[in-house]
Amino acid sequence: MKPEVDPKNLFLEISVLLTGFNNAELYATGMFDTYYHALQANTGQANFAYFFEEVEKILLENRNEPEKINQAITSRLMQPSSYNGLAGSIITMWYTGNWGNDVIDGQAYVQGLVWDAAQTHPPGAKQPGFGSWSMPPL
């Protein structure tokens, strides 16, 4: 990996592309640093480096061409054979707070984006208030 590129920035950029949630939404979970550390801790050094080299290439090659970026992600990152399924693990982490089957930590569960995507909240947290369930979500 080129020393001038902070992999944290790449992690943010690729997370936005993989999850469909923007920077502000991802930062609002308060989980960015936790997830970055979880990613480092759970990924072999070499695989981590190859993955972010590839991410960087994809982003550089297709600047301002979202369609092409998506195609590149599909063919070069989303294959189960690509980087040991790391792209999928990153999505799982943001959506559910899990790495594999393990909960990263209690807050990770609470901040799972799947609940936002489904217009609801994680069971046992972010409660919407008495009677809210009798109306469609806001």
Partner: peptide, 27 residues
């Protein structure tokens, strides 16, 4: 909805398409 997320990833969904898919299915 955890299993819906894993199934969608296995089908290659990501980004806005994934977010929309989860919204369409889970709701």
């Amino acid at each position: 909805p955890g299993s819906d997320v894993s199934a969608a990833i296995a089908n290659g969904l990501f980004g806005k398409a994934l977010r929309d898919h989860i919204n369409e299915v889970v709701t």
